[in-house]
């Protein structure tokens, strides 16, 4: 079975070689003449006056967590779709119930306005 994944391993290897090789080539071949002016921080002529990290609105977090939940739901759908012919009506109804319970949550978040952006 593992031989099916050999192309992916080769891709990982090529990706590492190409990505690392470009950085290494730039590092080795490019000229390095640093001076104190080149090494100062530069932000449109000012000194950097703020940290790059700042507080986010919490509603991005809500979108992210709702995305995770429906991502998980989709992860459950893949094996179900593969074996749908073999598990018969029982398996089909099991997934209908699973999706039905999650649709309750979906209606709740829709009606609450969690999907609406202000």
């Amino acid at each position: 079975m593992l031989e099916n994944y050999l192309p992916i391993l080769i891709f990982i290897g090529i990706g590492l070689v190409v990505g690392g090789g470009m950085i290494a080539a730039g590092f080795l071949l490019g000229p390095h003449k640093p001076d104190s002016e080149k090494l100062t921080s530069y932000e449109c002529g000012f000194d950097a006056f703020e940290d790059a990290r700042m507080k986010f609105d919490v509603r991005y977090y809500l979108v992210a967590i709702l995305f995770i939940i429906f991502d998980l739901e989709i992860a459950f759908l893949f094996p179900w779709a593969v074996v749908l012919r073999d598990i018969g009506m029982f398996g089909f109804l099991a997934m209908v119930m699973f999706l039905g319970i999650l649709v309750i949550g979906f209606i709740y978040e829709w009606k609450k306005g969690a999907l609406q952006w202000e």
């Binding site: 919490v58 977090y61 809500l62 999650l102 949550g105």
Partner: peptide
């Protein structure tokens, strides 16, 4: 498997209850 869907439902409701603020 069905319990997993209930857990996900609880997660939806909890996330909305904790973070949803309407201006």
């Amino acid at each position: 498997f069905e319990i997993a869907s209930v857990v996900l439902l609880v997660a939806i409701v909890a996330a909305i209850a904790l973070t949803l603020r309407t201006r």
